[in-house]
Design a protein around this nucleic acid. Structure first.
Length: 246
DNA sequence: AAGGCAAGCAACCGCCTCTCG
DNA sequence: CCGAGAGGCGGTTGCTTGCCT
């Protein structure tokens, strides 16, 4: 289920995240926010690429992330949205703030795709082939158009109904309550931390010892330039949440 | 008990879009 | 307008687990 840890040519670690790495990332972001994903691992003491850190945070470490145990309601929402939006996993994830796009995507491929797409087409030869995993991968590549947002013929097999899930509502312009809540926190954090001043110059500590110092003097400003997380938000982030996974 | 296979999922890869100078 | 850098997204892959024979 997990990839064997290894290192790329730049010495950056790849593969499974260790509990220690998770803890470092979570603690750093909790304290300083994700002010720059590509620079973040350097200052967080992680030998990872920024993208890997972002993915790990978004999918597993961020607060309120729910994993597994999909409810029937969630399944229905995903099915409906996928019927309307296609493989727009991030757009679908906007409607399920506790789920990451990656997890929704995996859930779709493992559980929902059969229900949505192939139940009505069980005699279809291609669907039979796709029941085999290896063939399924080939089918995915071969049938890219099927899953495109253009709503190709296979999507017409899905029962559609005029619903509240209009494309307009799925627009990223419209913030979910979750996002709105966090934006409020961000603003509050910005005001408080800027005025107190402690945020910008305080070194990042792990286990009470200073592992590294937060970046400073960034284009004339003290960095990180934007604290993303407020105290209210941080207090809601229980690191035990991560321990559950560890 | 052992081997093979399918399912599930974490994580990587590469492309696209956006922002900024 | 253009190019570089960063973030975001979707597709794909690699590995583990559990079931079946």
């Amino acid at each position: 289920m997990v990839r064997t840890p290894c290192h790329d040519e730049n010495g950056r670690k790849k593969g499974t995240w260790t509990p220690e790495e998770d803890r470092k990332l979570a603690e750093y972001i909790t304290k300083y926010g994700s002010w720059n994903w590509r620079q973040l691992p350097k200052y967080a003491g992680l030998a990872r690429c920024g993208k890997s850190c972002r993915l790990r945070w978004m999918n597993y470490l961020r607060p309120n992330v729910k994993r597994g145990n999909y409810t029937k309601e969630e399944d229905e929402i995903i099915l409906k949205l996928h019927a309307q939006l296609g493989n727009k996993w991030s757009a679908i994830a906007h409607h399920l703030p506790e789920r990451s796009d990656n997890e929704i995507k995996n859930h779709w491929h493992t559980a929902l795709k059969k229900r949505a797409n192939y139940s009505t087409n069980s005699s279809d030869e291609s669907s039979k082939k796709c029941n085999n995993k290896m063939n399924s991968r080939k089918c995915n590549a071969e049938n890219k158009n099927i899953a495109s947002p253009n709503m190709s013929s296979s999507h017409e097999n899905i029962v559609l109904e005029s619903s509240e899930w209009s494309p307009k509502e799925s627009s990223s312009e419209e913030l979910s309550s979750y996002q709105q809540e966090h934006n409020v926190f961000q603003e509050a954090a910005l005001m408080e931390e800027v005025t107190s001043g402690s945020f910008w110059t305080e070194p990042f500590e792990v286990d009470g010892k200073i592992d590294f110092v937060a970046p400073i003097d960034y284009y004339g400003l003290v960095c990180p330039p934007s604290p993303f997380i407020a105290h209210e938000f941080l207090s809601s982030f229980d690191l035990d949440h991560c321990n559950n996974y560890w």
